[in-house]
Simulated assay, not measured.
Amino acid sequence: MNDVAIPDRLVLASASPRRRELVSVLGLELPVRLLPTGADESVAGTLSPGEIVLELSRRKAEAAADALRGEQSAESSSGNDLVLGADTIVVLDGAVLGKPADREDAVSALMALSGRTHEVYTGVTLLSCPGDRAVSRWQRTLVTMKPFGIESARRYAATGEPLDKAGDYDTTMHLGDIGQYRVLSQSPSGQPEVIVGHTVSKVTFRPMSDAEIEAYVKTGEPLDKAGSYGAQGLGAVFIEKIEGDFFSIMGLPLNLLYQMLLKFGISPFQEK
């Protein structure tokens, strides 16, 4: 870790005060800046939920990195920023439940979730900035390094193909059975440039009455939330059980983020 050039600042590619609060829980000894982006959030229907959150977190990080490079160019200055992009989706029976279009849409989503178990996926991207190299390398790597599980890696290794190839193997690090991350790009000196990861948790809602759903929607809380509820707010009263990472359901898995930050030499346990 001593050989890693520690970033001067963490840039959160988000307008979410909740994610900013979660980052602050780590008590990092570096400034944190919020930099919202207008990244395109449309995705191909062929992507799996895990691939969707990786793709969207990557887009947000890239958009923020582009904005930072523009600022640095205009100011004729350079910094050592680390950009954090994150995205969360709710999945029920394989279908993604995004933010509701209106109150009626929120009511429909909550009725579908009532008394059932759904999944929450959160993707995280850490991207070293400035410099174009990190983004361009990520784009090239994205084509060839599609996320796959440990069993796929074992089957691939069993073919013997990776044995004579440098780098052509699964570099995924697993966090139990709920999360994973991998270094996608690093500098010639071994410095990480792009790290991506995601978690998946299961949330079970108790059966809710129509009156409860209507009253909850009237509070306005569900209207800007994926899946039409906020686990950190009044939506918590409907949650019967959580299997996985609670912070992932809130929008930023701290266990996963901690493991990824360590690769950049950042830790809340560093000596002051």
Rank of each mutant, 00 (worst) to 15 (best):
A86H: 10
E161M: 03
A61Q: 10
A95F: 08
A86I: 03
A134H: 02
K99I: 05
Y258W: 03
L47V: 08
L92V: 13
L12S: 05
A63M: 08
Y258H: 15
V107W: 07
V83H: 07
S185M: 04
E55R: 15
S187A: 15
G27D: 13
G115N: 14
S73A: 14
L234F: 03
G94S: 14
S16A: 07
D40G: 05
L22E: 02
T141L: 12
E151V: 10
P7Y: 01
E41K: 06
D164P: 00
A211L: 13
Q259W: 05
L234N: 14
K60S: 02
I6F: 03
I195Y: 04
A236D: 14
S201N: 06
D177L: 06
L92R: 09
A106D: 12
R33T: 13
D8L: 02
L234A: 11
V200H: 00
L34V: 00
K272H: 14
L261I: 00
A65I: 08
L234V: 04
I6P: 01
T46V: 10
I150R: 12
A67K: 08
Y121E: 04
K60R: 13
P188E: 14
V43M: 00
T122W: 11
S57V: 02
M145Y: 12
V183C: 15
T141N: 15
L126A: 06
F264G: 07
G160E: 13
E55K: 09
